[in-house]
């Protein structure tokens, strides 16, 4: 009897010991995990929706984090883009941010994506998190708008007329501020006023100043609804030969002192070659004289 009690007691002790051991181990490993969590930084996701008429729509995704009080781009992280519809999440794609923490995600087949009942598109971009950063997500809602553009010439002045409509209801959007600009290499150049508000017909009518240069006289005029809360950014483009043709003024094709060797100035070519041929011709004659002397044996 005492033996069995002893045994039971031993067993209980062992069980107790083992439980303590396993609990400490578990808590240690959990601590480990949470310790990592504490070191991780927060990622801020930003997505701008841009729609270019007649071209693709895209999201300009930017990931940044505040590390040591400075905003630092988060590069090389994977971001998944979802389309949310009626509690469903449809994965549209995965992208990796570049060295600047950015990526442009082109939305393929935008017309196949459906809106919800309020004609709003719902998107979600999410980052699953990694060793250095916590997971993050950002949702976007917007309605689709479109801009139709036309160039009208009246009394030899060129005007751009643009109409802003909401796509799903085909209603005209009144009193929205549109920017009119001409496409340039780095950033577009503004034409007209800073604010061009659409009238009751959802239209703006802006004169385009003369004397804007373009390749072969072609200009690409942009009408932009910039960063609207409801519609994102919508860009309408129109190409028109209403600019001043560019004239190449470079000296690249000419023979100049700074041209490559295949375009040496004629004067230098002739003068130096004449000198070289003249002098070396005489040298060759002199060396041939040496041979003549050798041959004359007596």
């Amino acid at each position: 009897m005492s033996n069995s009690i002893k045994n039971i007691k031993q067993l209980e002790l062992r069980i107790f010991f083992l439980m303590i051991l396993s609990i400490t181990l578990c808590t240690l490993s959990i601590q480990d995990v949470t310790a990592q969590e504490v070191k991780k930084n927060r990622v801020r996701l930003k997505a701008d929706y841009v729609k270019v008429m007649g071209d693709d729509s895209y999201f300009d995704i930017k990931a940044s984090a505040k590390i040591e009080k400075k905003n630092v781009p988060v590069s090389n992280i994977d971001i998944i883009i979802y389309h949310e519809l009626n509690d469903d999440q449809i994965k549209l794609g995965t992208v990796t941010t570049d060295n600047n923490g950015e990526h442009r995600f082109i939305i393929n087949n935008f017309n196949t994506i459906k809106t919800d009942t309020t004609n709003t598109y719902n998107f979600l971009i999410s980052f699953k998190g990694n060793d250095a950063f916590k997971k993050a997500k950002k949702s976007m809602q917007f309605k689709d708008a479109n801009i139709t553009t036309e160039i009208i010439t009246k009394d030899s002045i060129n005007y751009i007329s643009a109409t802003l409509r909401e796509t799903s209801t085909d209603s005209l959007l009144v009193d929205q501020s549109l920017n009119v600009q001409v496409q340039r290499l780095f950033q577009s150049l503004r034409i007209g006023e800073e604010f061009n508000n659409t009238d009751e017909n959802g239209t703006i009518f802006v004169p385009i100043e003369a004397g804007i240069p373009g390749v072969d006289g072609n200009l690409i005029i942009e009408v932009v609804l910039n960063d609207s809360d409801e519609y994102g950014t919508v860009k309408g483009l129109v190409k028109a030969p209403i600019g001043v043709p560019i004239v190449d003024e470079s000296t690249f094709d000419q023979r100049t002192m700074w041209s490559p060797r295949n375009k040496t100035p004629i004067f230098i070519l002739i003068f130096t070659n004449l000198l070289i041929v003249g002098i070396w011709g005489i040298i060759v004659y002199l060396i041939s004289n040496l041979f003549k002397i050798v041959k004359l044996k007596s």
């Binding site: 340039r184 290499l185 780095f186 950033q187 150049l189 503004r190 804007i212 240069p213 373009g214 190449d248």
Partner: peptide, 18 residues
């Protein structure tokens, strides 16, 4: 400001001017 003289446009990232 940097740009293309033929386009008669230069920009410093914020302002874009003739």
């Amino acid at each position: 400001y940097f740009g293309d003289k033929y386009e008669d446009t230069v920009t410093n990232g914020e302002e874009t001017l003739r």
